[in-house]
Amino acid sequence: MTDSQRIGVAVFGAGRIGKIHAGNLARHPHAQLRYVVDVHAPFAEELAAKHGAAVATVEQALADPAIRAVVIGSSTDTHADLIQRSAAAGKAIFCEKPVDLDVERARACAVAVKKAGVTCMIGFQRRFDPTFAALKQRLDAGEIGTPEMLVVTSRDPSPPPAAYIARSGGVFKDMLIHDFDIFRWILGGEAVSVHATGASPNLPEVAAAGDISHAAVTLRTRDGALCQINTSRRAAYGYDQRFEVLGSKGLLQAGNVRPTQVVAWGEQAISSDKPEAFFLERYRDAYALEIEHFFDALANGTPVRTTIEDGIKALELAELATQSWREGRALECSV
């Protein structure tokens, strides 16, 4: 494929996730990374130089007709503005979660996307994880009958800095938004009730930032299927990402990914590697596969799997969970 046939793209954000996306773009046959945009010039310059791109401003990138798509990996507080400006410029959009921390601003983004008629995909990379996707395929094939309960475990190895927590939107929007998307994806329905509780045991700095470090959420669908999500900002043993689905005819489990699958059997114990260190390692394949899907969809004119509507639905659940935790009661959902 020649350069003129490839889809010109600008990456907004040159931090951790921007670097991952830029690397995957550089390897994708349908994409051509042309610009890197970041308010911190040294980050943008370093990433652009690594992949043969140029540094640009938002205005320059969106004004260039050679740019047909943008990948938004900048801070959450920039997402809504960049989505709306990119849609107005007629660019296809891939944006990291969440769409915004405010539900109304997120809905305004959806209106802008629909009005412009552009593709907009939200980065729920867990749907593209090979293990999770294989479970979903077997579930849809009816292997365990009708799904009745989903149990999700989602734990980070350590809490982020207090300054980050204070502006993150809280654990339900920052961390569990992925798990709310998993709930909708796996059970295939919408929640009619949400009950969330949480605390910050032995982590006073998290509480001081106005958040909680540990949470438990129960959701129920209209047909009575249940979902239980347990999460923590601290798991001393590593990044813990797994779930199981109980169905009328059996159980499907998706476990952690480890650096190697070697298991040592000794006289005193049986041991294996701890889970992958964090999300960049755990979901390296998923990040590549979601970018591949986005650009394949653009090249073939097919719909994307994770839409801005999915982003809004997950954010609505995060908002309700936050309210439920603060008020100490279960809340009904409008579906």
Rank of each mutant, 00 (worst) to 15 (best):
A299L: 02
T221I: 01
V194W: 06
D273H: 09
T307P: 13
W265R: 00
M175Y: 06
G198E: 04
G328E: 08
A108I: 00
R284D: 14
D285F: 12
Q60D: 13
F43N: 12
S4Q: 13
V99E: 12
L187C: 12
A191V: 05
I17T: 11
V262H: 10
I72V: 13
P29M: 00
N24Y: 14
A254F: 09
N300Y: 00
A66C: 01
L135W: 07
G210T: 09
R34K: 14
R329E: 05
D3A: 15
S158W: 15
G23N: 02
V171T: 04
V206N: 12
S154V: 00
P160W: 10
S86P: 03
L139R: 14
E45I: 07
N256Y: 10
V263A: 10
V192P: 11
V171R: 04
K91Y: 09
L33S: 06
H79S: 04
A208M: 07
C333A: 14
A321I: 03
D179N: 12
A61E: 11
R282Y: 13
A134V: 00
R242N: 15
E46I: 05
W265S: 02
H51L: 03
A31E: 04
G169F: 08
L101P: 05
L298D: 04
I308N: 05
T231H: 10
D174A: 12
G145Q: 06
T218A: 15
Q125T: 06
